[in-house]
Amino acid sequence: MVTVTLRNIVKARNGFRLKIDELIVENGEFLTLLGPSGCGKTTTLRMIAGFERPDRGEILFDGRPVNDLPPYERNIGIVFQDYALFPHMTVFKNVAFGLEMKGLPKSEIERKVRWALEIVGLTGLENRYPEQLSGGQQQRVALARALVVEPEVLLLDEPLSNLDAKIRERLRGEIRRIQRELGITTIYVTHDQEEAMAISDRIAVMNVGRVEQVGKPLELYYRPETEFVARFLGLSNILELEAENGRACLNELCFDVGRSGRVRIFFRPESVYIMKGDTAEVLDYELLPGRIRLKLGIGDRVILAERFLDELPFSVEEMPERVDVRVRSFSVLGQ
């Protein structure tokens, strides 16, 4: 397995410009590229695969530059959104393809194909053609085909986005399990933040051609550095306040920010705790399964709070007009 490094990458094409100063995917790590449509995730992945060349900068596998290597010499495995199974080959032939390209003997090929199909749970379907498989099964074949050549890097471009929600959740768990078992360096592309959080060691959040922040899922979730990252990963409260003597206050709700001047304070709705009191006005609320989401007015600002129902100090039927709030954890956003 290898460490993948992208350094000073620039890739421009009609109007769009991708720029990545540095992105390191550690040996055996599962890194997800997360971002909205058109931000450059696929382009990044395709450069790592070797389908496209960066205009500038270097891509390194374990310190070796691979810019000049064609895809077939990079020892990668890739899984596409639409699977790209060879329609004229059976499941067995599809999975065997990469091994045949390596010129392995027949018995060896047979053994490895069995192994790969077993890993993805498809034993028994060897002789089917892709069109005779369900979407989920096709996805497993694609995964087996990519894994069987024992690639040093596994690349997956929105592999689950054509599947329905239930299967998506199950398959992502399996992808994660297999990746852990094989310890393979993996780069995964998605625009679904929940999927990214569930599956990744680290996430790189991308926004129009840039990497905004790289970090562990919870780190990004609770301590985003930019408003974009904050909002992309979930519901956010962002308050722009004037700080004096290291404290920024909205009426009685104060934050120790350790500096002065204008600051932007971020916290998640679930960091807001509710108590009996009268700091905030209950403007509205919404019931979710087992939880409640409240819209609270403090001064001229509105913040969101989200709690499990049984955490409330009162029952929903007796919702008071005003409550007290406390914010347990927050971060200060950069500009």
Binding site: A49, Y72, N75, A146
Partner: peptide, 27 residues
């Protein structure tokens, strides 16, 4: 033929002409 099919073949170690003979031509 979707270009992905060709790229999949490349990623599995097939050179361009091999990808053509084994994947695209049969299609």
């Amino acid at each position: 033929i979707k270009p992905n099919i060709f790229e999949a073949a490349l990623s599995l170690g097939a050179r361009e002409w091999k990808a053509f003979l084994r994947v695209e031509l049969p299609l």
